[in-house]
Amino acid sequence: MWLDISLTIILLLIMLILPPVLDGIERKIRAKIHSRIGPPSIMQTWYDIRKLFAKELVVTDTGYIMFFIAITLFSMTILALFLLPTGFMNIFSRDNISLLLFSIFILAIQLIWMLLSVAPSNPYSTIGVFREALLGMVNELFFMLGLFALLVYVNGLSFTHLISTSYSITYVLILLLLASYAYVSSGRIPFDIAEAEPELASGILIEFSGPLLGMVLYSNLVKRAILYGFVANLIILPLLGELNLLLKILLFFISLLIIWIIYSVTSIIFARTRVDLAPKTLFFFYLLVTILITITWLLRV
């Protein structure tokens, strides 16, 4: 019991510290691909966030609402983090509806992101939200379909059910669908159209500064870690079985790192898509995967 609780707390702390470090690693990799030195160390993102928190808080007309929403976003993100297993089923993820709850939190986080960007009445951020919503319509729709398929496939609503699941073509396809979802909703190129820097001058982030921006950026990184951690869990949980606990945890973090790196390299290789192209492309891609899932399901392979 005490071991459980202390492990849960330790891993939670690690998950809170890790995302900016992973981002630091990503920045180093990106620099390497760009043929430049890049930031001095992988802790640079943490330094940046620390710097932002040291700045004065500027409260604009809509500042109070923004502050409130940012806090909500932050706490919602932390709540979702609580539910995420890290190779070890912590006391929250053992709950028998943890997977369902987790998905609801993820959808809520996406929603609050949009809310956050509507708050300042800036034309850039308004357009940013419009784009985010357009993309979200496709993205979240298929997330729910994929999630539904997953829940039916594992025959349960908890993360614990994933352990007893076995791999099959259907499962791989569901995995592909949810992994793509994780990629798109983490706002990476080519799908970062909402904050497209040259077009919208940072779009939805335009009105934030100082500690508020620091909090929003940090929440965004934690959100990435949650999404990628979710994918990592989907991949490794069915494989782990009766491994040593520490080994399981190690395996989780390694796969999280690998997923993060694969995603970041992909985003470096491609360019930003356009707002009318993105939902179309995504829609057809998701539709194809969904149809394949259905077919394989019916064929029971």
């Binding site: 760009h34 043929s35 290789i269």
Partner: peptide
């Protein structure tokens, strides 16, 4: 094809200096 960039980058190495 876009992934060919990785080989270009590898060949070019790091070109910036720590000024």
């Amino acid at each position: 094809k876009p992934f060919k960039l990785l080989s270009i980058a590898k060949k070019a190495g790091v070109v910036t200096v720590l000024y």
